[in-house]
Amino acid sequence: MLSRIAESLFWIGRYVERAEDTARILDVQFHRLLEDPWIDEDAACRGLLDVMGVPIPKTDHLGALEVCEQLAYNPTSPCSIVGALSAARDNARGAREAISSEMWECLNATWYALPEQVAAARNVGPHGLFRFVKERVSIMGGLSSSTLSRDDGWRFLVLGGSLERVDMTARLLSARWGDAAGSPGWVTTLRCCSAHEAYLRTYRRAVDASLVAEFLLLDRLFPRSVFHALSTAEACLAELDPLTTRSGLDDEARRILGRARTELEFRRASELLRDLPSHLARIQGACSEAAVAVAERYFRQTAPIEWTA
């Protein structure tokens, strides 16, 4: 398939996942800000913007409202929900023939509905917007899963989504590190990943810091764990380039992800937890490097040649 199309699909996957994860995170954090009487709102908001990699505005007091402006309503930032969905739609517009028309319609209709949703969110509270985004992204996921052939295009789409998911989960965990083991913040982290109920069913006990980290990093069965998403991304890469060499690999991205995955898989949980921040930083780094390697290998485009007189 065309490199340009492949790149668009990869980024549709990433942006859609980014929009969904951001909506999940904000939905939980926003209501925690309201409901927790002891929270330091300014510090919590700064922490949230920081972990999402958004520059922190220079004001005396940051509130939930400003965080929503930055991470949800901002139409130009690729880190905000509206920005990410717009970018996904832009990419889909150039790749309409490669995705099913239902997928395009879904993204397009979502994009058209955003202004109204944002206006309502500003007026009566943002929960409706978050819910809308989660639902639309789920429809998008369902449509791509039921209408796309499992060809390379599908693989780039899933690859992008998986890498973004690894990145987001790693960000969430690194925000929490240093909190007391029984802190309610760990429940918030689980709920941000929609993992609270799955966690409870797995461990059947109150939330504990090291178990949460273990669950979100290493669980083999939960689809939002770092391990699960890394494995999915790796599988996509393996299918994209099924030829294996006699020794080693010649796919740089696969090498990077495989190394990150084995770092997790073959380490004791206690060992990981002792030095969690640096492990998380490595995982995030691996995601970025892998994305670059994928781009190098598959999306190589020559810059347009300008003929000058």
Binding site: G178, A180, P277, S288, F299
Partner: peptide
């Protein structure tokens, strides 16, 4: 409980690492 967390953090001198910028799109 949140205050305890903040206190524990302050005493341990812990600062969460600054988040990386998300990968930009094409």
């Amino acid at each position: 409980p949140s205050d305890e967390v903040v206190a524990a953090r302050a005493s341990a001198g812990h600062r969460p690492p600054a988040g990386q910028r998300p990968d930009p799109g094409p």
